[in-house]
Write a protein that binds this DNA or RNA. Structure first.
Length: 278
DNA sequence: ATAGCGCCCTGGTGGC
DNA sequence: TGCCACCAGGGCGCTA
């Protein structure tokens, strides 16, 4: 399940492969994967375009392209649960879950594979039309100075939602998902059920500091691979071995030795230590 | 406005 | 090649 570190790893692994490559042909094998505009226009507009730099915002990838005529284009991709962007130097046959294929001049290929088909492509128009609503309303990037304690306290004021749901909210901070929220709350020593409005200034400092530390470490490890996640070269990340609570219910807490617990919160499985986070 | 819940989708797993 | 309920969860749409 790609969250910020996984999407950043895809960005880093994909950008050098795609930079300067021209799209020769596009196959849309599952139309619903193209969210905007209609698949025919999508193919028409992008065929013949050339890839430029790739940016990331939260869990969104923003691929810059230039048309043959020199006009800039922006292709937005969200991988959701099981989406994978894979670069094939020597393309083989497409598989059951390969929903989009961009054949590149020179013989390589950019392939989109998505078992659960939740991901999506948006070719954003020059005036921003087609921009996914979630991208337009994203909160600050957690690894920038805009994400700091006073901001978080301000956002938390009056919010009765559990901290778990609060940090999962992409309008609060961009890029955290189920795995990293559990890790951050454990590292900060806060119960995921605590109302957001109960955060003290010192606790907000802890949340911000641990978010930055954990995300930076996870990026350095090239992300977390539980089931599906791989980078553009098909390589898994190494952070799963460093997870302290996610997926470890019943195991002893690394801090105090008490068994870790798992509950259902905000519609998500939630892992925590009742002692360290009490 | 906020909070909570169902839905989308497929494959893996575990119980019987 | 046994069958089936359940779980995984990001974002969105709906309700109160």
């Amino acid at each position: 399940m790609p969250e910020l570190p996984e999407v950043e790893t895809v960005r880093r692994s994909l950008e050098p492969k795609l930079l300067g490559k021209e799209i020769a042909e596009i196959q849309v094998r599952r139309r619903a994967q193209v969210r905007f505009p209609d698949p025919e226009t999508f193919v028409l507009e992008l065929t013949g375009s050339r890839f430029g730099p790739i940016e990331r915002r939260g869990k969104y990838l923003l691929l810059s392209l230039t048309t043959a005529g020199g006009s800039p284009q922006k292709l937005v991709v969200h991988l959701r649960m099981t989406g994978q962007l894979l670069y094939d130097e020597t393309p083989g046959p497409l598989g059951k879950h390969d929903h989009l294929s961009f054949e590149l001049v020179g013989g390589s290929r950019l392939r989109y594979n998505d078992v659960r088909t939740f991901g999506g492509f948006y070719l954003v128009g020059p005036a921003g039309e087609g921009t996914p609503a979630g991208l337009a309303s994203l909160g600050p990037e957690p690894l920038t100075d805009a994400f700091e304690a006073s901001y978080l306290l301000d956002k938390a004021a009056g919010r009765q939602v559990p901290l778990k749901a609060f940090l999962l909210d992409q309008q609060v901070v961009a890029g955290l998902g189920n795995i990293y929220v559990d890790e951050v709350l454990h590292a900060a020593g806060l119960l995921p059920t605590r109302p957001a409005s109960s955060l003290t200034p010192a606790e907000a400092e802890q949340v911000v500091a641990e978010t930055k530390r954990i995300l930076a470490l996870a990026i350095a490890e090239r992300g977390t691979s539980m089931r599906d996640y791989v980078d553009a070269a098909g390589q898994p990340g190494g952070f799963a071995a460093l997870l302290q609570v996610y997926g470890r219910a019943g195991e002893p807490c690394g801090g105090c030795g008490q068994p870790l617990e798992r509950i259902r919160l905000a519609g998500r499985s939630t892992h925590y230590c009742p002692q360290c986070q009490g």
